Amino acid sequence: MVVASGTNVFAKEIAIRKRIQNIFNKREEDFPSLREYNDYLEEVEDMTFNLIEGIDVSAIEAKIAKYQEENAEQIMNAKARKAEELAAALAASKGPAPGQADADAATNQSSQVGVVTGAPGQYAPSTAGFVQPRPTGMAPQPVPLGGPDMQGYDDEEMMKLRIERGGRAGGWSAELSKKRALEEAFGSIWI
């Protein structure tokens, strides 16, 4: 039963943090100085903590409602900016589809003149009030170390050395593995 109550507390904290994060969503570039941004973050964290702990909830809820009312446009702009960044990141992670280069060029040209077109049901950012150029190129995807292009260059000894060094870098050692195996073996003996 303790686990269930701990899970409920954790779920409550996550729900409160998500709610507060969706309302108080300013970024560092929205402030003239780092000090003001840090003060803002501290105030938001204090409110979050008090809501989680149940301290002066009615006053904090009133403060949140007032902030939402005064900053409704800014909150919506930040949500749209976040959605646009997520959509761009998703598109960048997938890479261009075959035959998509012509469609990308047409979309890029139309977005720079202020006309946004898209398939029905897909997110299309609003350009009312401003026109922002979009990046045209795709960033190169990182290549994992020891990937398929590097397999032909290492001999067997070099591969063993790399595996051993990689394990040690992660805190693993052969002695630790042997010690654990012995402890587990002798720990299973019942006398």
Rank of each mutant, 00 (worst) to 15 (best):
V57C: 04
E84P: 03
K94W: 11
E61L: 08
E73L: 04
N22S: 09
G152K: 08
M47H: 02
S111A: 07
P142G: 09
D56V: 10
Q132F: 08
A65E: 12
E36A: 14
G121D: 03
G146Y: 08
P140D: 15
G6T: 00
S188W: 04
A185Q: 15
S58N: 13
A128P: 01
E85D: 14
P98Q: 12
V57K: 07
N8A: 13
V2R: 01
L86P: 02
V113T: 05
P144E: 12
A89I: 12
G152P: 01
I75C: 02
A62K: 13
F186H: 15
M76Q: 15
R19S: 09
K179M: 12
N38T: 03
M76C: 06
A139Y: 08
Y153R: 11
E175R: 09
G187M: 14
P142D: 09
E28H: 04
E175Y: 11
Y37D: 00
R165F: 11
G147V: 13
K26G: 00
G147K: 06
A169K: 11
I14Q: 12
A65Q: 11
N108Y: 02
D149R: 11
E85V: 14
M76E: 13
D102I: 14
A65P: 03
D56N: 14
N71Q: 09
S173A: 09
A106T: 03
P133L: 05
I64D: 01
F186G: 15
S5K: 07
I163E: 09
D46W: 00
A89G: 14
Q122P: 00
P144Q: 13
K82R: 14
R180P: 04
V9K: 10
V2S: 07
E61F: 02
P135K: 06
M138S: 11
D155K: 07
K12H: 08
P142K: 08
S110A: 08
V116P: 00
Q100F: 10
T48A: 07
T107D: 00
M138H: 11
A103T: 14
A59W: 08
L182F: 13
G146K: 03
F186T: 15
V113Y: 02
F10Q: 10
Y37T: 01
T107C: 02
T48V: 08
V44E: 00
G146P: 05
I189E: 15
I189K: 14
K79S: 10
E156S: 11
S173Q: 05
G171H: 13
M159Q: 10
E184C: 08
G121R: 01
L90D: 13
S110C: 05
E156K: 13
K160N: 12
R17N: 05
L41M: 06
G6C: 08
G118D: 01
I20A: 01
F24R: 00
F186C: 15
F31H: 05
A174P: 00
T117V: 12
P142T: 08
G170L: 15
